[in-house]
């Protein structure tokens, strides 16, 4: 039972960290609960479908189907996180300005929510497919004590969800004025980490050049497969033996999001407050 608890917890925990950040980042946006729950449901359904067609995925793209699929959904998540980041950069300024823009913001907020629901779905899909296949294997082997293993799996899901909830609660305890600055950085790091992972997956299958297969080795210091290592991997894309292209993708996306958000904030329509405008302009 313990073995299945550990295996399932690990996967749910990784997805849960992403869900926790997304929940905090969408704090205060109307109807986000339904959207994000939809994202989790879609991810779970997708995971079951992916497990069902695992054989077909495996043999697709000359045996590189799993790599191509994982990289593709990671890149989709990076694009969605970027969209949200830029939207927040704009939205934050407008919220502080005229309230008459609110109607438009709600419509825009819906698009950002769709993007974030997709990010949640991708996180659940990636880790969920492994859980589904693992539990299917237990059920199919019908070996003794599979009930206990299933119970362990259920407890693993519960514990993983608790971590997610705990992260969310500690994030929203941050004062609102600071919250979106913190979640902004978390989203940028999350996107950078996912971009790095996508690059590492593609380079690992020789689909793109690696630019150095191992830039450094910190597996002795902080192994990527330990729980803190996994948490950092899921949150900021930590790798104990990163490839060159992985670091490059990480840096590129982080820089693009930080610079992009700054530019959007500057270009966003400002509230009609000349004194404020003058003070902030160089």
């Amino acid at each position: 039972m313990l073995a299945s608890l550990v295996i399932v917890f690990r996967e749910v925990f990784e997805a849960g960290l992403v869900v926790g950040i997304v929940l905090a980042a969408t704090q205060g946006v109307a109807a986000r609960g339904a959207w994000l729950a939809g994202g989790i449901a879609a991810g779970t359904l997708g995971a079951a479908l992916l497990a069902l067609f695992a054989g077909a995925v495996q043999s697709a793209f000359a045996g590189n189907g799993q790599e191509a699929f994982n990289a593709a959904i990671l890149i989709a998540a990076v694009l969605m996180l970027s969209w949200h980041q830029l939207w927040m950069a704009r939205h934050g300024r407008q919220m502080a300005g005229e309230m008459k823009a609110l109607g438009r913001e709600v419509a825009l907020g819906r698009r950002s929510l769709f993007a974030m629901a997709l990010v949640v779905a991708v996180a659940v899909l990636r880790e969920g497919a492994e859980v589904v296949l693992f539990l299917y294997g237990i059920a199919a082997s019908g070996h003794e004590g599979w009930g206990a293993l299933m119970l362990g799996g259920a407890l693993g899901v519960l514990l993983g969800a608790l971590v997610s909830f705990g992260l969310y609660r500690s994030l929203v305890a941050i004062p609102v004025a600071k919250l979106f600055t913190v979640t902004g950085w978390l989203i940028a790091l999350l996107a950078a980490g996912m971009a790095g992972q996508a690059a590492a997956i593609l380079a690992g299958a020789d689909l793109i050049p690696a630019w150095g297969y191992q830039l450094w080795d910190t597996s002795g210091l902080l192994p990527e497969d330990s729980i803190p290592g996994r948490a950092l991997h899921a949150l900021v894309g930590y790798a104990d033996r990163p490839m060159g292209v992985q670091l490059a993708a990480w840096l590129a996306v982080l820089a693009a999001l930080v610079v992009g958000a700054r530019q959007t904030r500057q270009a966003a329509p400002r509230p009609r407050q000349p004194s404020l405008l003058q003070r902030r302009s160089p």
């Binding site: 695992a54 199919a140 104990d240």
Partner: peptide, 19 residues
Amino acid sequence: DGTPAEFESSDLRAEKIIV
């Protein structure tokens, strides 16, 4: 085997499901 497996190694940076 009759059940799915996942070939995994952080040492080799591999993680791949085998039906």
